[in-house]
Computed example of a mutant assay.
Amino acid sequence: MAAREYGQYCGVTRALELVGERWALLIVRDLLVGPRRYGELAEGLPRIPSNILAARLKDLQAAGILRRAPRSRVVVYELTPYGRELEPVVLALGAWGFKAMGDPREGQVITSDSMTMALRTAFRPHVAADLPPTSYLAHLGPAELLVRVDGSRLAVSSGDAPADLTFAAGPGIRRLISGELSAGRAIETGEVEVLHGHRDLLARFASTFHLAA
């Protein structure tokens, strides 16, 4: 199946042969959020050429990582149980890559799926377990996410709904999650704008979602 073979008998080598091609893990990342139609995958990866997307989907399906599934009158792509085993790998890569992100470069975009996985990466269930259930409506660039935290359980979905705290932020949300900015300072500098709810809840958000930079 792999377009590239490394000639080594090794688990890491085999993993790279299966998901190491460009765009492959980003397709997996988005499918970890949920099943997607072909057009939804293309929309979430705006720079991927259509022929490459089709080829990666074909390769990942041949490897048993994803499958095509009929849903009503459409076909969606979804991860198989084998494919879902990649979740801790993707989350660990996200945490590792967070340390080197820096400020966004020109042309870089934020998507709902990428931000959903970023929040899942930063979530600290051991901290959240000691906090009251809280819901957040986060406007993160073009992404609008409803974030529900109940004990050690996290649910993130797209869309608008009532929440305990509604806030808007751009790429500067990274500085809050990294601890570079306190919640109060993030509000003062305009990196985060509280739209509804008590501003003190932003500190709860910052303690619940944290990644060391």
Rank of each mutant, 00 (worst) to 15 (best):
2 A>M: 06
2 A>C: 01
5 E>F: 02
6 Y>A: 10
11 G>P: 05
11 G>M: 05
14 R>I: 14
16 L>D: 02
34 G>H: 08
36 R>I: 00
40 E>C: 02
41 L>R: 03
48 I>V: 10
49 P>G: 06
51 N>G: 13
52 I>W: 03
61 Q>K: 05
61 Q>W: 01
66 L>F: 01
70 P>D: 03
71 R>P: 00
76 V>H: 00
82 Y>F: 03
82 Y>W: 01
84 R>E: 10
85 E>N: 02
93 L>H: 02
95 A>Q: 14
107 G>T: 12
109 V>G: 10
113 D>M: 00
117 M>G: 00
119 L>K: 07
120 R>L: 01
126 H>P: 10
126 H>Q: 15
128 A>K: 12
129 A>F: 12
130 D>H: 14
131 L>F: 13
133 P>S: 11
135 S>R: 13
140 L>E: 14
146 L>M: 10
149 V>G: 10
154 L>K: 00
154 L>S: 06
158 S>C: 01
158 S>I: 00
173 I>S: 12
174 R>C: 07
180 E>I: 07
181 L>A: 08
184 G>H: 07
187 I>W: 04
188 E>V: 10
188 E>Q: 14
189 T>F: 08
194 V>A: 08
197 G>T: 14
202 L>C: 01
204 R>K: 07
204 R>F: 04
213 A>N: 03
